[in-house]
Simulated scan of single mutants.
Amino acid sequence: MAQDRPTAAELLAAVADFLREEATPALDRAEPRLGFQMRVAANSLAILEREARLGGAADAREHARLRTLLQRDGALEDLNRELARQLRTGERDERDMELMAHLEATIADKIAIANPKWR
């Protein structure tokens, strides 16, 4: 990954800001349907910017929690698959406080990327 500026996250944020602050208001006046579509595009870019900025650390935290919870190593996707299997078979359920703490932390990280205003 390039270490120069602007970073990918900065570029995504700049484009999203332009679309939200300049292009969308102009389109709202001229063509409201396109203004709505522009807001969707700007919001999508904002999600990508937050994922570029926050996603790696969130994945690392989730991976570490899963290794502890499952007491095994593996790729994040494989560990999630194993956790899903355990949930489906009833090996784990909502009475497992370590599981619930993991799920709450994972959801909080995902919401911080998808819609930080939600909380």
Rank of each mutant, 00 (worst) to 15 (best):
M1Y: 15
A2I: 12
A2Y: 15
A2G: 15
A2F: 14
Q3M: 11
Q3G: 06
D4M: 04
R5M: 09
R5G: 12
P6G: 15
T7G: 14
T7V: 09
T7E: 14
T7F: 11
E10M: 07
L11W: 14
L11Q: 14
L12I: 02
A13Q: 08
A13R: 10
A13M: 05
V15R: 12
V15A: 10
A16C: 10
D17H: 10
F18T: 06
L19G: 01
E21M: 11
E22Q: 06
E22S: 02
T24S: 07
T24G: 08
P25F: 14
A26P: 07
A26C: 13
L27G: 05
L27C: 12
D28R: 07
D28H: 10
R29Y: 12
R29N: 12
A30Y: 08
E31N: 09
L34M: 05
L34P: 00
F36S: 03
Q37Y: 10
V40F: 08
V40W: 10
A41M: 15
A41T: 13
A42N: 09
L45V: 01
L45Q: 03
A46C: 10
I47C: 14
L48S: 09
E49Y: 02
R50W: 04
E51Q: 08
A52M: 08
A52C: 12
L54Q: 07
G55C: 09
G55S: 06
A57E: 03
A57L: 00
A57K: 01
D59N: 02
D59R: 00
A60G: 00
A60F: 03
R61F: 00
E62R: 00
E62M: 03
E62K: 00
E62I: 02
A64P: 01
R65C: 09
R65V: 07
R65G: 08
L66T: 04
R67N: 05
R67S: 06
T68K: 05
L69V: 09
L69T: 08
L70H: 10
L70Y: 12
L70S: 13
L70V: 15
Q71V: 06
R72G: 13
D73K: 00
G74D: 01
L76K: 00
E77H: 09
L79E: 03
N80F: 03
L83F: 11
L83D: 09
L83A: 15
L83S: 11
A84D: 11
A84I: 09
Q86T: 13
L87N: 04
L87W: 04
T89L: 01
T89N: 01
T89Q: 02
T89Y: 00
G90C: 07
G90D: 13
E91K: 03
E91R: 05
R92V: 14
R95E: 04
R95H: 03
R95C: 02
D96S: 02
M97K: 10
M97Y: 14
M97R: 11
M97G: 01
E98P: 04
E98S: 04
L99Q: 09
L99Y: 10
L99R: 04
L99E: 12
M100H: 06
H102E: 08
H102Q: 05
L103K: 11
L103F: 14
E104G: 11
A105I: 02
A105D: 03
A105P: 01
T106M: 13
T106P: 07
T106W: 02
T106I: 13
I107T: 13
A108I: 12
K110F: 11
I111D: 13
A112V: 06
I113R: 03
A114P: 01
N115R: 07
N115F: 03
P116R: 03
P116F: 01
P116M: 03
R119H: 05
